[in-house]
Design a protein around this nucleic acid. Sequence first.
DNA 1: TCGACATTTCGAAGATACTCGAAACGTCGG
DNA 2: CCGACGTTTCGAGTATCTTCGAAATGTCGA
Lengths: 105, 105
Amino acid sequence: MSMTTKLERHADQLAALGSPIRLAILRHVVQGDPEGTVVGELQSKLDIPWSTLSHHLDRLASAGLLKHRAEGRFIHYRADYAALRGLTDYLWEDCCKGGGDNRCC
Amino acid sequence: MSMTTKLERHADQLAALGSPIRLAILRHVVQGDPEGTVVGELQSKLDIPWSTLSHHLDRLASAGLLKHRAEGRFIHYRADYAALRGLTDYLWEDCCKGGGDNRCC
DNA sequence: TCGACATTTCGAAGATACTCGAAACGTCGG
DNA sequence: CCGACGTTTCGAGTATCTTCGAAATGTCGA
């Protein structure tokens, strides 16, 4: 197993979101059916070639931001909301450590 | 001026955070002195070559996540908390649109 | 079993990002 | 002014990312 720190895992997740296409995919999934969004729907809505889309979905899933569940020929992707929450929280962690009138939070 | 959508700007910010080094820089600045952190302190704490560090700081500032203020020979970097908030909020925007028992928020 | 469909893997070209030493720049104290 | 200091720019090598067509995989209905 590869030794990965929390920082590295989160950096990987942020990098996964750091492409307009992949961010659009995540936004679409987050706003979509809680049961999951089928790849074909993403393909038609976002108009991305199948192979390109598949690659990006894999990147998001590898980063732990998307989960997928096969149902017959269809594969449903849904967000891993816990992971997403962990990521956004991480950016603000220990923000007010410096004391004083730090009005960041 | 280049026409940039909200999605593109946020993807750029996420990409800026998507490197372990840059994420470490932001975390350090966020946790540090509200008045700002001097480049030299980042250099010694994170042990990154000056030129590399400078490049990464520029990337974070261009993305709008860091602001800098010169004070004599020293340059203080601090987080743009409003931008950071806008970014983390964006990921959750319209999350519960799908109605139903979507327990994401 | 056959053919239609949903999706992934392979492969390779082109673009972009990362890294860091050397040199340049600006600013201060003396 | 001048030398020391903090920081950035330049340049180039290397690595990683992006993209997508073609072919492969797996699954269903008939």
